[in-house]
């Protein structure tokens, strides 16, 4: 009996527990919440009105109350142009900033990959370091720089480019949002690009040169195509979370910038309308499903 316990049952249990513990955790705290959000998005607004639904009687009771499905919230989303223009503008901002990130990030990653070997680790470290410091703080840092009476205005005034009464009006515009996004997400773009470029064999370029291909051309026919996996990984790593970004448009974009993360936040915290904010989240999730699935396949291949 004891023999059987140590021989068959114990290893089996250990194996089973190893899978079960993280699996159940993810099911409960990652997947189940999505089902609930979906369910609540189909429920009537009144049920979830504040203050924070007193859920007497536990889960069964709570779900029973929600069982009167209604698509009202989704209909509501289509009726108010605020929502679909927020979705569209989020996608547009995410797309533009991803392209900007690629343009800014590629030369940096390229320079890192071509730097002397002894320097490379330090450079990677230097790219990662700001990523470890608070996102909120890094966004905040730009407020002082971009404000009309901020450092850029002061710098331009002291250079005489702006007159003493003129100011730069970037703060609370989309431009400030782009700057903030590019700044905050740059490490997410640079690191995958660097990883792809660093692997690239320098002799390939020598071979190309040897066969008569000039450097600028060999960049486009050799370097860039071979770095494509890094480009794709970097773009998805940036694009998906940017679509739902809240902090940057909230702090830098002002009222004129429309993004869905902000809308959801306002719906939840200001209007306290949980079903509508759930519907907003579900639609956002549906929009992002395709890029997320592509990203995951990419991850699995890597």
């Amino acid at each position: 009996m004891a023999e059987r316990w140590t021989q068959d049952v114990k290893p089996f249990l250990a194996k089973w527990a190893l899978v079960a513990v993280p699996y159940l955790w993810s099911l409960l705290f990652f997947l189940a919440p999505f089902l609930i959000i979906f369910k609540i998005s189909l429920s009537q607004t009144a049920i979830a009105m504040p203050p924070y639904v007193p859920v007497i009687g536990g889960l069964g009771d709570f779900l029973a109350k929600l069982s009167d499905f209604t698509f009202d919230n989704y209909v509501f989303l289509t009726e108010d142009p605020l929502y679909y223009s927020a979705y569209l503008s989020s996608l547009r901002i995410a797309l533009v900033s991803t392209i900007l990130l690629l343009i800014v990030g590629y030369p940096i990653a390229y320079g890192m990959a071509r730097a002397p070997k002894s320097l490379r680790n330090a450079l990677v470290m230097a790219v990662i370091l700001p990523f470890w410091t608070s996102f909120l703080i890094r966004v905040y840092a730009w407020i002082g720089i971009l404000k009309p009476e901020g450092l850029i205005t002061i710098a331009l005034q002291s250079l005489g480019i702006l007159g003493p009464d003129e100011q730069i009006h970037v703060y609370n515009t989309e431009i400030a949002v782009f700057i903030g996004i590019v700044y905050s997400y740059l490490p997410f773009m640079v690191l995958p690009l660097y990883a792809a470029l660093e692997k690239l064999d320098a002799t390939l370029l020598e071979a190309a040169a040897d066969l008569g291909c000039p450097p600028t051309k060999s960049f486009w026919v050799i370097t860039f195509p071979l770095s494509l996996p890094g480009v794709i990984a970097g773009c998805f790593l940036c694009f998906i979370p940017i679509v739902g970004e809240f902090v940057i448009p909230d702090l830098l974009g002002g009222s004129e910038t429309l993004m869905i993360g902000k809308t959801l936040w306002a719906e939840f915290f200001n209007n306290r309308d949980w079903p509508v904010s759930s519907a907003v989240a579900v639609v956002l999730l549906i929009i992002l499903v395709v890029p997320i699935v592509i990203f995951q396949n990419q991850q699995k291949k890597a």
Binding site: F236, F246, A281
Partner: peptide, 27 residues
């Protein structure tokens, strides 16, 4: 399982935050 491991890496925080809150309220 691998989906649940990789998805939160890119999931917008507003979605993760809101959905977890609703779970806590539900239970």
């Amino acid at each position: 399982f691998s989906g649940m491991v990789y998805a939160p890496l890119v999931m917008p925080e507003v979605i993760t935050g809101l959905s977890l809150l609703l779970l806590f309220v539900a239970i």
